[in-house]
Amino acid sequence: MELDGKVAIVTGGGGGIGAALAQALVDRDVRVVITDVVADGLDRVEAALGEEGSGAVATIVGDAASPDHIDRSIALAESRFGPVDLYFANAGISGAPGLAATDDEWSQVIDVNLMGHICAARRLVPEWVQRGGGYFVSTASAAGLLTQLGSATYSVTKHAAVGFAEWLNVTYGDRGVRASCLCPMGVDTKLLRPDDTPIDDEALLMQRAVETAGRVLTPAEVAGVVMDAIDDERFLILPHPEVLEMYRHKGADYDRWLKGMRRYQQSLIS
């Protein structure tokens, strides 16, 4: 897709990958609405981008999983810039570790990591089909192709996000709607390295697993890979190319891969 002059919405844009995506889009002359549940992060990002004098950024505070917030974000984009061409379903949370997670904790992670994507697509894709074009970018994770040690809620919902993005691509790809799925490993964000939350054993396992699996990238590096993938309209966006080889090994011999993952997990907690 040619990005110049397009209109985009980026969720979870108050920091990390979302803020880097917003910066990369503005650099490509895209007009961007940035949303986040935390106002402080949005204020910092808006101030940083506003210093460039483009006037191409608007922000709105709210929950990316809320249909009402999605509607308000789209309305803001349309009133300020015009019809939405791209939607980056980037907001995400790690959630609780495993079988001890409560129903409420599961619901929260499912809402943010999956239902936010579904609600946004439900709202935008029919319009894109009528217009003959649009682009949906889901931020999932390498955990959605492999798994995530230390967090069942994260692993399960990221698998689901990959599956939904695949379905969008297959179902609407011949009707002008593009869908891509971002699946990085370690990225230097607060999701990986929180600075205000005590790290329990499961969270520490999750962090160690990600940090030792490959190089931890900067959000700007990831955003650059995303822009290249959009240029090529490529579905699977892998800032860590080695994930593809891991995925191939998994598919080639699932039981051997599972045994290897158990050994890897044991090495991290020994």
Rank of each mutant, 00 (worst) to 15 (best):
D40F: 06
L42Y: 01
R44T: 14
E46Y: 08
E46T: 14
A47S: 09
L49V: 02
E51T: 10
G55P: 11
A56H: 09
A56R: 13
V57T: 10
V57D: 12
V57H: 09
A58F: 01
I60T: 12
V61E: 15
G62Q: 01
D68F: 00
D68A: 15
R72Y: 06
I74L: 11
A75H: 05
A77F: 03
R80T: 04
D85Q: 05
Y87A: 15
F88P: 09
F88E: 14
N90T: 09
G92P: 08
G92F: 06
G92T: 07
S94F: 11
A96Y: 00
L99E: 11
L99M: 13
L99R: 11
T102C: 05
S107N: 10
S107Y: 05
Q108R: 14
G116W: 02
H117P: 00
I118M: 13
C119D: 11
A121Y: 01
A121I: 03
A121N: 07
R122S: 10
R122C: 00
V125S: 10
E127A: 13
E127L: 13
E127H: 12
G132A: 02
G132W: 02
V137H: 09
V137Q: 13
A140Y: 00
A142D: 11
A143N: 05
A143R: 03
A143K: 01
Q148D: 09
G150N: 05
S151W: 04
